[in-house]
């Protein structure tokens, strides 16, 4: 099995899986019907993307494992998503802040992944980028609305950005699999995306009349499988059926 490629795909897909699962929690509980529909749609897009990635990963593994085994039957330390996407829906500002800080990265990442020499990955990126550019527009618009809305919404949006900021730097860390895949021109060199990312984020925060957090200390660990305490509970839900009723088809 091409282990680096397999791990590389999981690294990408886990972000979408965990974020899709998180937003899925909100379905039916949104602040308005329109935002409810939009958030459900984002969750749907992300999980659809996950299926493409994991089906490809299962093919590479070349054994009995399925997309669901990969998604739902790993141990907590084996999930490689960044810490940002597992953060809870504390309120709508956190949901939007998390989405925005990830979408800006996701969009630039996919633009690069389209150039991958791995044709499957480039095709998936090509399909996903259309969806993600909508996500990015949705979350940016809401950061602007909440940032430049009422006094209360500004406070809440600022607080969310301040709290989530510490998870942004990890987006640009490289794992062993990342480095190996960059060498083969399969993977994206995320370290090169950092400049554009922070520029785009800062420009938008300014437009939203929000302050750029000054903190220079960043959390990391998700890509190596060391997560925040939030992930375990998310996985309990995600894995519940597969663990309770093992080896069945649904």
């Amino acid at each position: 099995m091409k282990e680096n490629l397999y791990n590389y795909i999981l690294g990408i897909a886990d972000n979408s899986l965990i974020l899709g699962q998180r937003i899925g929690e909100l379905c039916g509980h949104g602040p308005s019907l329109e935002t409810d529909i939009a958030c459900t749609n984002i969750s749907l897009d992300l999980l659809g993307q996950v299926r493409s990635y994991f089906q490809y990963a299962a093919k590479i593994a070349g054994d009995e494992r399925t997309e669901d085994d990969i998604a739902m039957l790993r141990k907590e330390r084996d999930y490689k998503n960044v810490l940002l996407v597992e953060q809870p829906n504390s309120n709508f500002a956190y949901t939007i802040g998390r989405q925005f800080l990830f979408d800006v990265y996701h969009l630039t990442f996919l633009a690069e992944l389209q150039k991958s020499t791995d044709l499957t990955l480039s095709a998936i990126a090509n399909k996903c980028i259309k969806e993600v550019s909508y996500h990015e527009r949705f979350s940016s618009d809401w950061v602007k609305r909440l940032g430049d809305g009422t006094v209360e919404s500004k406070e809440k949006m600022q607080e969310a950005i301040n709290d989530l900021w510490t998870y942004t730097d990890e987006l640009f860390h490289q794992t062993k699999a990342d480095k190996a895949m960059v060498l083969e021109s399969v993977g994206v060199d995320v370290t090169k995306l950092k400049g554009d990312y922070y520029k785009r984020v800062k420009d938008l925060l300014e437009e939203a009349t929000l302050k750029i957090p000054e903190s220079k200390w960043f959390q990391k660990g998700g890509k190596e499988g060391v997560h925040t305490e939030h992930l375990g509970y998310l996985l309990s839900d995600l894995q519940y059926m597969q663990r309770t009723y093992p080896n069945m088809e649904w």
Binding site: G24, C27, L33, S43, M241
Partner: peptide, 28 residues
């Protein structure tokens, strides 16, 4: 929506999300 986070497979999860989203659309 009570079962979205616990759907047994990715295929079912996606289908359930789409279904609940349809209902929101009907409401709208």
């Amino acid at each position: 929506s009570n079962w979205i986070t616990r759907a047994p497979s990715l295929r079912r999860k996606v289908a359930l999300l789409a279904k609940v989203q349809d209902e929101a659309g009907h409401g709208l």
